[in-house]
Design a protein around this nucleic acid. Structure first.
Lengths: 227, 227
DNA sequence: ATTCGTAATACTGTATACAAAATACTTGCA
DNA sequence: TGCAAGTATTTTGTATACAGTATTACGAAT
């Protein structure tokens, strides 16, 4: 009796937020919950429970889980439902290797394909990020950092590349979000970013690729201890 | 009344084939149907019709569609269901650029990571492929060709890389499957493969990467006319 | 006390039913 | 005849119901 109320109320709330279909809403909602650690790695997902929590029935929730399973954020065990996927240190290292390669590729392409406005936008993101660095605002810094990397990939104007890059980035995001580097490493990362932006503005593909290479290799060193 | 029978019969038949869950079956089934052109690009998918055709109800079918949507093989239009995704020439070119980069990366890693047995397996696949080439058996040749490329990626022992590679390969497969090159280009492709295998056996990372580079660049030239 | 077996319970997998949206059709009117 | 509006039908989206499977708890036997 109470469940009907809960369901209706929840449904209304979610529908009001956006025009997307319900399973789409749930996908983004669950993705955030997983990335932010609201759902722990290895944790089993009980459809009834989670559905009631979100105020939706099992049907769209299950559809969302299938979607996330294809993204690799949850694992589907036959007859035993979904669990939040847990990544090993090697998994994360492997992902970062691929991410590094993809960003290098994107950087090279961007040097010839990107518009001046696009590069200028990256520059302004970078400047804002540096300001947050000096202010010691780690969360804001982190968000802009992500945006810059995603933005460089976007400059390559290659949607499959951007898509796949986003896929892997959403997986490591969970790990990186937790990892907070020390002050000296943080400073190093900012310096690397400066050289990256400079190479991009000079449209120097090889230098940009090299700088991205070392930056992302160092990124792995920075995060390794956390995993 | 007939629908019940159909549903039951279909269910039983599929369940007998394998132990996987039904939506998993449907995913692989639909993926094949899309790749083999059984479902045309741009074609709208009517859930009732397709479900009856496969002998399943809408629920697992919809779950399968969500999975394939995340894979990028179908597109989900809100309130209007699923359509088979259609790729532009640029899309395919972009995918091949990424595939090329990933295979080069995989090749480089494989030169240090692969076991001797793994390399020997690729060699035997190659030899079998050459035999099919001389016999003029295009379909068998094509299948082994795919297996070799997938196999080289597998040698890198990097599962995210293999996963992403497979994702993009399944998309271009549809296109490549249609494209049949002329005799002279076919011969060129076989020769390139020979050099690739040789470099792999020599564990010469740079040569292997270079050979994969030209091979896959040529591959795009070969398929371009079709798209 | 431990282990095996059985029953109870809980959860997933699939089908069906109902509601809302979109599409197609028909009828009325200019 | 052409267009428009309203209705009918089809189709998607969501919820619920039912069936099958795994897990757990409890009891009996060694």
């Amino acid at each position: 009796m109470a469940s009907e109320m809960t369901g209706q109320a929840g449904r209304r709330t979610l529908a009001t937020i956006s025009r997307q279909s319900l399973h789409g809403e749930i996908v983004t909602r669950l993705r955030d919950m997983i990335i932010e650690g609201d759902l722990q790695p290895g944790e089993r997902i009980y459809e009834n429970q989670l559905g009631e929590e979100l105020g939706v029935s099992r049907t769209p929730l299950r559809e969302a889980l299938k979607f996330l399973a294809s993204e690799g954020l949850v694992e589907l065990v036959p007859s035993r439902g979904a669990v939040v996927k847990r990544f090993s240190a090697k998994d994360v290292e492997d992902m970062l290797i691929v991410l590094r390669s993809m960003e290098m590729l994107a950087g090279r392409i961007a040097c010839t394909e990107a518009s001046n406005e696009g590069i200028a936008q990256i520059r302004s993101l970078h400047d804002a990020m540096v300001k947050h660095y000096h202010a010691g605002e780690r969360l804001e810094y982190y968000k802009l950092n992500q945006q810059i990397h995603t933005g460089i990939v976007a400059l390559a104007n290659n949607s499959p590349l951007a898509e796949v890059h986003g896929l892997l980035q959403s997986r490591v995001k969970r790990v990186r979000f937790i990892g907070h580097e020390g002050a000296e490493r943080w400073a190093g990362a900012v310096a690397e970013h400066g050289r990256i932006i400079a190479a991009l503005e000079a449209r120097d593909a090889e230098t940009l690729a090299r700088e991205l290479d070392v930056h992302l290799a160092n990124g792995w060193e920075r995060v390794k201890s956390v995993v």
